[in-house]
């Protein structure tokens, strides 16, 4: 699991690589809360290179979006594989996050 951080037009993009599971989600949690504490309000999480997610990963995203909402910030998710999107659908998370097909489309959500 690797998290790659990029900044573009004042928007922070976190790219996820590999597996977001019970083992690796603490690392992602640390990173996402770091950027939120640094004052980021517009956040894109790019799922393009993410192969796996479990409820541990969903937990981090839920916690982060609750935190960002308090400061009127927003998280947009993009480029999800179809089977990963299904996890979001079953969990009822599609109503909590805008999910779009590319980073470009995600930029337009802000």
């Amino acid at each position: 699991m690797e998290v790659v951080e990029k900044k573009q037009n004042g928007i922070c993009i976190l790219g996820l690589l590999g597996r977001l599971d019970s083992n690796t989600s603490p690392e992602f949690e640390k990173k996402i809360f770091e950027v939120i504490e640094d004052g980021t309000k517009s956040l894109i999480v790019d799922f393009e290179s993410l192969d796996y997610i479990s409820s541990a990963g969903l937990r981090v995203l839920l916690k982060a979006t609750k935190e960002l909402k308090r400061s009127d910030g927003k998280i947009v998710l993009c480029s999800m594989k179809e089977y990963i999107k299904e996890v979001f659908e079953i969990a009822g998370f599609v109503s909590l996050f805008p999910i779009v097909s590319s980073v470009g489309d995600a930029m337009e959500e802000f």
Binding site: S54, S55, A56, L58, R59, L62, T65, K66, K69, V87, I90, A91, G92, S95, L96
Partner: peptide, 23 residues
């Protein structure tokens, strides 16, 4: 069963793993 419909403020993650597994 977790409540997958409620608004974000009340959303809890508990039992979501079991819910996914059952599906």
């Amino acid at each position: 069963e977790p409540d997958c419909e409620c608004p974000i403020e009340q959303r809890k993650i508990g039992n979501l793993g079991i819910h996914l597994t059952k599906k």
